[in-house]
Nucleic acid binder design. Sequence first.
DNA 1: GCCGTTTTCGGCCCGACTGTTTTCAGTCG
Length: 581
Amino acid sequence: MKNLEVAQILEEIADLMDIRGSDAFKARAYRRAAAVIGNLSADIAAVAKEGGLEALPGIGKGLATKIDEIIRTGTCRSLEELKAEVPEALRDLLAIPGVGARTAATLYRELGIRTLDDLERAARNGKIRNIKGMSVRTEQRIIDGLARMRTRGGRTPLGIAKPLAEELVAALSQLSAVSAIDIAGSIRRRKEDVGDIDLVAASARPDEVTEALCRLPQVASVLAQGATKVSVALRLGCQVDLRVVAPEQFVTACHHLTGSKEHNAKLRGLARQRGLRINEYGLFRLDGEESADEETAGMLVPVRSEAELYAQLGMAYIPPELREDRGEIEAALAGTLPRLVEPGDIKGDLHVHTDWSDGKNSIVEMAERAHARGYEYIAITDHSQALAMAGGLGPEKLAHQAEAIAAAQAALGDKIRILRGIEVDILSDGRLDLPDEVLSDLDVVVASIHRGFHQNEEQLTGRVEAALKHPAVDIIAHPTGRLIGHRDEYAIDLERVFEVARRTETALEINASPDRLDLSDVNARRAGELGIPLAIDTDAHDLARLAEMEYGVAVARRAWRERDGIINTWPLERLLRYLKD
DNA sequence: GCCGTTTTCGGCCCGACTGTTTTCAGTCG
């Protein structure tokens, strides 16, 4: 039983409790435990075996017993009892923005709605508006929310899919039958969410490899199994396709299965013009004659790497993140591909939280970890006072924090520079949540919106515009407010934001949290092309999430960005000059 | 259900916003 699976079961219990109307604090305790286990680096089953569950924060006698039961049996009595009382399918309704536990319970009680289909039918037939406390507008919001969920349907966020894929690769690479194995598909291209996990293995004994995958503990069921290809469903609800090829076919198979489909199609057309043919089994010279549909027809042109493959087609190597047929093939032919920013270029993180607001770790801990990651600097940017629920800082607390930062700096010496910052709320009227003289005293001011999402486009854009024009503001964080698979961008005129950001030379953030990735690849590309400085920040609330920088860098790469356009690749001196201006 | 110790019971990040209401429940972060 994996940590994430245990966490999901605890989440399920909490959701069902909320719908049932149990004590909200009890449900919260389950959620807290789920989060603790989900973020745990140690294996929960091992912890349980050693009797260490109760040592974990938020887990006492009661939960420890239940977690034990879950690890042993895959479920627990209280979950089964809840399921008998509350239709499990009601949980799906919670995914709709604006529908919480109470609404879900009401919909079930009043209209017998259990599933998303039930809900849609009721909404379209105008049944919702008749419920006390609901209206035509509520009905419309539900219809809109449903439509959005459907288009997202079944996709897994990169932040979940990639670690899962890596786990499978680690397991399968142990096999003696496997000479090479790698992740392909949209995970390798670092798309923000993926339809399934694609793996490619090289082996002379393919059936041993496909068999091994089917037997992995993560696998719930086998969907299809052939000689060299197998599809399985994971217990976490994600599909995996594994393709096994001969070792000499590994490079071209990886390339083929990395895609995208559109990129490959264009590449194959180009190859054909040059008398070549590409498929998953290799690169072949056609020698004038069309020798039927035999896969291996023509003469094999050996390629030892993808770079060689692209070279054979007369173009520069195209990194996976660019393979979307968004102009990369033309650029590679012309030799004008950008030199993409790399994880190693990042010299600091300019948006992180500590235990001064809603973060988990101390200033020193965050700075130490940033140093361990090889950074030159880190900006401490806790929330401002308007976010009371996150323990936001007012002027006084901020002044105290300045002392703590100075002390941390003294303790760390010249290992890393700790910058004093704030993530200041852009209030509903566009003012900032702290006085100008407080903001101007800081090294880094990150401004962002945390409330009033439902304002109209004029209002929201106006707020961001006002923040951009504020002389103290250096970076606008998560500019569109989206949460991947959960909440759309709010109504904001990005073109206008870009125009003002360009004029004021204010940086826009690529928020690296896999929940956000905001700006998105497409928006970041547009911003970068306009010459707007970008900052890739993790918004980390604990040590582990500082590592999510890789996802932000991936977005920047998918956005065709080079190092120089990212302000936190700059050396400290240059960054400080920029922040001062 | 967890936690602390000024409390083994009674708190539990808590305020803003929204929409539907005439005083507030539900949702969100």
